[in-house]
């Protein structure tokens, strides 16, 4: 089961922290990279709204300050996501995933609308709660096996407790709830497609990666 994401293609060692690429992690990394580039080069769409009380419609504009902040958050989210996709260390993975959660809160919360900020606040609470089991899982892995290296754990010399795996999944679920809150915000017509898509993409990618991590360790 060591090659569940395909045969490893490349290892990049930083001391005992190893970054590795398999066809699976490479595909996820490339997608995070491609969408980060989209965020960098795209201007947001201008959403069409009906003007109540008449038959007119207008296009919503995003202010420059809001655009800059959301773009910054989206690129930070993309970078964190790329890190989470290729890291071979359980603690680094949890760290990157929590950073994804923070960035997602920022992406949604930057919209100046009461409904959207409510959604961001609710997601912020869920993401905050999600970090606790996630870091607890990393701590349990280190305490019970003596290592945080996924490649070492994949050898099967030490058994990772089921509770640690469950907590890791629970934590990632908390962080990965972003699309539901982003979608809730979008229902109130929050504009800014490239940024909102980073919420969905990053959440999906961390779900996919945690599946591999759980099967690997």
């Amino acid at each position: 089961m060591n090659e569940i994401g395909g045969a490893p293609l490349f290892f990049l060692e930083f001391g005992d922290i190893v970054i590795y690429f398999t066809p699976f992690t490479l595909a996820l990394f490339l997608l995070a990279l491609v969408f980060s580039v989209f965020v960098l080069v795209s201007r947001p769409e201008r959403q069409l709204e009906i003007a109540f009380g008449g038959d007119a419609y207008y296009a919503k504009e995003i202010s420059l300050s809001e655009l800059r902040f959301r773009r910054f958050m989206s690129i930070a989210c993309g970078l964190a996501c790329m890190g989470a996709m290729v890291t071979g260390d359980v603690f680094d993975f949890t760290l990157f995933v929590s950073l994804v959660g923070i960035c997602n809160v920022g992406i949604v919360a930057a919209v100046r609308s009461r409904h959207v900020q409510n959604a961001a606040y609710q997601y912020g609470l869920v993401a905050l709660a999600g970090t606790v089991p996630m870091f607890a899982a990393a701590g349990m892995v280190a305490a019970t096996t003596g290592t945080l290296s996924m490649l070492e754990l994949a050898k099967g010399t030490a058994t990772v407790p089921v509770a640690a795996r469950a907590l890791l999944v629970l934590g990632v679920m908390g962080e990965g709830m972003a699309p539901f809150y982003a979608a809730k915000a979008e229902m109130f017509r929050a504009p800014g497609a490239p940024y909102v898509i980073m919420c969905s993409l990053s959440s999906l990618l961390i779900f996919l990666r945690v599946t591999e991590v759980i099967l690997l360790i």
């Binding site: 491609v34 989209f38 080069v41 795209s42 201007r43 947001p44 769409e45 201008r46 959403q47 069409l48 296009a59 497609a193 490239p194 898509i197």
Partner: peptide
């Protein structure tokens, strides 16, 4: 005219 061009095509 209202689209986010790079994303729309990309």
């Amino acid at each position: 005219a209202t689209a986010s061009t790079a994303l729309f095509v990309g």
